[in-house]
């Protein structure tokens, strides 16, 4: 137990040094860094414009009012951007397996998944985070719910949500260990994320059960938002969010270790 704790502490401490190296690498090309981020802002404006145009036309989805829908949408983008910023290198697992770069990570005394994730910092997705914050702030205002507790809760929900998304993508990208080519699974994971964008009760009963209990993406936006709405019936579900997130993450991690055992390596 003491050993385990020490090991975790070591990984946490090292994260700073990885971040530092990543940051310095980004700064090695200052001009692309700036242009990429400017492009990132345009990219996010593109998604905001899409949401905005959509909501100038539709004022409710099912039984949910416009501000409620906006909060759910904003929360899903928030969780997703947190995931995106810190876990983006997961998407390279397939490439690492194909080129054999993963071998390098396996001969170091650190957790391989940690090394994959810590090895790179996203350079152009800060705009998505900004978009999410704007959407959440606006919707909270419309709902008259800009309280400290709500903001704290949204932070917890965002982190939990990012763990849920990360779990999805860990499983999707771990498929590369079996199949080498895993882009289909990666994009499947991206697609599953889309469930979180809209209120979960627009889906049929079967789908709703699946996205609540099997692939719990509904916990990345829909259920946590219920706490802000003060929706008595679903309040308990809302509070379960962090627990569900940790549980699904544990499952995904277990799958990752199993997949790694099947890894063959490439010839060189």
């Amino acid at each position: 137990m003491v050993e385990k704790t020490k090991d975790v502490a070591r990984h946490v401490r090292l994260y700073y040094w990885y971040l530092r190296a990543n940051w310095l690498s980004l700064m090695a090309y200052p001009v692309p860094f700036i242009t990429m981020n400017l492009a990132g802002v345009v990219y996010s404006l593109g998604s905001v414009a899409t949401v905005w145009v959509l909501f100038t036309r539709i004022h409710a989805i099912g039984d949910w009012t416009f501000p409620q829908v906006l909060l759910i949408y904003g929360l899903s983008i928030f969780s997703r951007s947190l995931f995106h910023l810190f876990w983006v290198e997961l998407m390279s697992v397939s490439w690492m397996v194909r080129t054999g770069h993963i071998d390098r990570l396996l001969v170091r005394p650190l957790n391989p998944l940690y090394q994959v994730v810590a090895g790179y910092l996203d350079d152009d997705d800060w705009g998505e985070l900004l978009t999410a914050l704007i959407l959440i702030w606006t919707s909270l205002g419309m709902l008259g719910q800009r309280t400290v507790w709500n903001i704290l809760w949204i932070l917890v929900a965002g982190i939990s949500g990012s763990l849920i998304f990360a779990s999805m993508h860990i499983v999707g990208n771990a498929m590369a260990f079996f199949t080498i080519e895993s882009s289909g699974f990666t994009s499947l994971a991206w697609t599953i994320d889309e469930f979180a964008r809209y209120p979960a009760d627009i889906y049929g009963k079967g789908v709703r059960t699946v996205i609540t209990w099997v692939i719990p993406v509904a916990f990345a936006s829909f259920y946590p938002a219920q706490l802000v709405f003060g929706n008595g019936a679903l309040m308990r579900m809302a509070l379960a969010t962090p627990v569900i997130a940790l549980m699904i993450f544990a499952c995904a991690y277990w799958f990752w270790t199993k997949a790694m055992d099947c890894y063959q390596g490439v010839g060189n």
């Binding site: 099912g62 079996f178 080519e181 289909g184 699974f185 994009s187 499947l188 991206w190 889906y203 789908v207």
Partner: peptide, 29 residues
């Protein structure tokens, strides 16, 4: 890439479900 293909098809079906549910819910009112 067979497994990859199955995943792609699954993703396509999911998008159909999402889009269909969304627009049906939007037009309910």
């Amino acid at each position: 890439y067979r497994a990859n293909y199955c995943a792609t098809l699954g993703g396509a079906l999911i998008m159909v479900v999402i889009q269909w549910s969304l627009w049906t819910a939007v037009y309910r009112n």
